[in-house]
Design a protein around this nucleic acid. Structure first.
Lengths: 150, 150
DNA sequence: CTACAAGCTCAAGTCGACTTGAGGTCAAGA
DNA sequence: TCTTGACCTCAAGTCGACTTGAGCTTGTAG
């Protein structure tokens, strides 16, 4: 089984070496040794990193991701808590769908100010209701860099 | 039309007064005047705040939200750009759905380490493929405080 | 009239997830 | 053997979205 050094991992995942070190510091991934001073990883970490990316895309913090599927591959959370996550995600998906519908509406509605459009108002009210379910979730997967098509 | 002061807005929306000031500083909402030194808002801002919350839930930065539906209610982005947002949201929804399925799987699969479960592997590969579409989106609506049911 | 709770401003701090920089180490090729 | 370039560590910096704190102002209840 070929062992990979940090730059190979970085190249094949697109994740910066500094970030990989950071992940190791935080215990999300593990290097299985060193060649000289350089870290060596098994190809397996590539999958783990895919999982980490997915978790991040889902808005979970590194600590949470670690708790859900640790570097050893064993979930450190109870079934119960995982199901809570699942429900949170379902709500989040609902919210995103609402938002998408509203943005689509904004893009298409000819009203000068969308706040005056009864249709828009309706969408807004609906989405407000929905979020009043159970969750105090206050997310924002901040895009910091990248994206932003001028 | 009754004018509201900052604490009334705060109470009815659950958003901290400091955050409301922050939003005004950034130009997301506008107070229509002062009573003495105290800001006065029209009830309309409550809707705007609902919209802001939705945008945040969608992972947009305050600047982006401002660009999409400004404090005056006029979208400052072209239809084109809004549609790009819509597509981004669709992809994000896909990602979240994948993640939800995987977490659900982790919660239910009896395998000692989910990475060894072919089923899980499959889910992971599928979700990796999907995100290789068009987007460089690297989100994470960090939960910082709140939530975390012990 | 005076006290006070509630607001205000402005600067500085916080939190998570990294990035950047300075200075050190080492395996491998010329 | 010497050089080099890839990697290392550790501390400090950055970014967004607020929060906190210090010190000031003011409408209103007593």
């Amino acid at each position: 089984m070929k062992l990979l050094d940090i730059s190979e991992i970085s190249k094949s995942t697109g994740i910066a070496a500094s970030a990989l070190r950071h992940y190791e510091d935080k215990g999300l991934i593990t290097s299985i040794g060193r060649r000289g001073m350089k870290r060596l990883f098994t190809p397996e970490v590539i999958d783990q990193l895919a999982l980490i990316n997915l978790g991040k895309a889902g808005g979970f913090s590194l600590d949470e991701i670690k708790a859900m599927f640790g570097p050893d591959g064993r979930p450190a959370l109870s079934r119960q808590k995982l199901h809570v996550r699942v429900d949170e995600l379902d709500r989040q998906i609902q919210r995103l769908s609402s938002l998408r519908d509203m943005i689509r509406h904004v893009a298409e509605c000819p009203a000068p100010s969308h706040m005056e459009c009864p249709n828009f108002q309706k969408l807004l009210r609906i989405s407000s209701k929905k979020s009043h379910g159970t969750s105090p979730m206050t997310p924002a997967w901040s895009r910091s860099k990248s994206s932003s098509p001028s």
